[in-house]
Design a protein around this nucleic acid. Sequence first.
DNA 1: CGATAATTTGATCAATATCAAATATCGTGG
DNA 2: CCACGATATTTGATATTGATCAAATTATCG
Lengths: 210, 210
Amino acid sequence: MHFWPDLPDTVKRRRKLFKAHDVLFHQGDRVSSIFYLESGRVQLVRYLEDGSSVVLHVAHHGDTFAEASLFAATYHCDAVAEVDSNVLAISKRDFLSVIGATADGALALAKLLALQVRDLRAKLETRSIRSASERLMAWLRMQANGNPPTVVLDRNWTDISAEVGLTREALYRTLPLLQKQGRIRRGGDTIVLLDGSTRSHSRAIQKSVR
Amino acid sequence: MHFWPDLPDTVKRRRKLFKAHDVLFHQGDRVSSIFYLESGRVQLVRYLEDGSSVVLHVAHHGDTFAEASLFAATYHCDAVAEVDSNVLAISKRDFLSVIGATADGALALAKLLALQVRDLRAKLETRSIRSASERLMAWLRMQANGNPPTVVLDRNWTDISAEVGLTREALYRTLPLLQKQGRIRRGGDTIVLLDGSTRSHSRAIQKSVR
DNA sequence: CGATAATTTGATCAATATCAAATATCGTGG
DNA sequence: CCACGATATTTGATATTGATCAAATTATCG
């Protein structure tokens, strides 16, 4: 994963600073770089004709993004800084010639992409859950780690609602509901999942996924 | 994608039959194979520390699954046959040694995974469209090629409804609706998209996505 | 030809989207 | 430290849409 910063000097890199809401690249732009996010947060967003948007991916510090574009001529989405962000723009041409030079390098790239496939599949599956409560719980479980499973939020609920696939209103209504049911506990920006039993959940999944 | 069946004979493959509810592998099992699903349906399920579970992916016939596990020591989820299923188990070691032997091979794998990433992102985007008509149109556009854009179905609508994220009833009601609106034309298992103008489309999207 | 799965239509309901607005919080400049 | 504007969170009322349950019809396949 951290082989990106470790690339040889022959791979041109440019450090760039973006302010919140700055656009790193637009859908349709010729692919010149892939990116390593040193700090901040960048959304990959697809803007539809009417200006509405879908969040395709949220890159966090330490993530690389737009690698899928390595094999494409143009970017297939917009990249927008959610907050002030510090990125390394890595030349696509240089990168490919270095990474593609050795089997190990190319395999490392494949590995990174494999992880993304996994993550995306999980998100897709989450979207198949119709009930707001169950979908949110599934999303939380995906983010959680530790025992008891705990999620520490690094962004606001409004942003999260888009990723979960609910309106923010629905999300804001579901949260206290889950709390009342004793399935989560909220404290500041941490959520503890108390949903120990598999049974109720699997039944919920069964109802919601065909 | 059709990369997998075209592997040289040196890559060991075993055809295996599983009955409904059979487990192909367990979370934590050593990764020995990746799989190509010839027929049937296989669920990838993840069990969390507290015993709850999330369905990560449902593989349908023609899909490869567990490729993401190529780079992991152990499977990160369980694979369970939903119905009787027919899979090709491809030796991970053989596969990796063939693919990983050359930079070109590994790049081909990376490219495949990159395409999957893009495809999954597109699917995720589709799921954000709330209106049944628009979501179905978006799905059709994704599948279509040629001019006029045409989709040739390789499975029944009931299966497709699951992928689109609608009940089959909703799908079966949406189809004649789109027809009546002159947005598609149906003939047997081919659908022709008549939604040529960007304008009408953008307006329609406007209604359906927030 | 019978059985099984796929497609189609009908009626009703529940859930979440939508529109609206109030309150709370945060960040910034004075 | 305060005031102010911008953003985030919360609550309310209502409408729509697709889910759900039911059943009929049609196609498919031994």
